[in-house]
């Protein structure tokens, strides 16, 4: 199972960030979220903190999304500890998506009304 992201449907409301923090910590604070929305003028980019893979760092640099240049490190979903985002703001502990438990029931998908995030079997 994985979370499919259709960034063209994302409207940048950050409800996924809010519910992620709510479900994991019982408080509302987007800085504690395991999903982050990067808002650009012409599109929004939801990025989930996924598992760390060494290979991901080989593609560092600028990447093209829909004809626009974006920092590859920003849109990379690997939760590398040296990345500045995806860190618990008070303790600095890196955060990682856990699909909200077993069986997977990601809350961000539940709260995504525009359906940019969907859970698919794979």
């Amino acid at each position: 199972m994985r979370i499919k992201i259709d960034y063209k449907k994302c409207i940048g409301c950050k409800q996924c960030e809010i519910v992620c923090s709510l479900a994991h910590t019982g408080t509302v604070n987007p800085w504690r979220s395991r999903i982050r929305i990067f808002i650009r003028e012409e599109f929004c980019l939801p990025v989930i903190a996924g598992p760390y893979t060494e290979a991901a760092c080989n593609s560092k640099g600028m990447v093209m999304v829909d004809g626009l240049e974006v920092d590859g490190c920003v849109v990379c979903r690997a939760s590398r500890p040296t990345k500045s985002v995806y860190k618990e703001p008070d303790t600095g502990i890196p955060l990682k998506c856990d699909f909200c438990g077993e069986p997977p029931d990601p809350q961000c998908v539940q709260w995504c009304a525009p359906e940019a995030l969907t859970l698919i079997e794979e």
């Binding site: 409207i11 409301c13 950050k14 599109f43 709260w111 009304a113």
Partner: peptide, 16 residues
Amino acid sequence: VRDEGCFSCPFGCSKR
């Protein structure tokens, strides 16, 4: 160009 939601608003009535 796209729909823009305000913070915590999934209705996104604002348009770019």
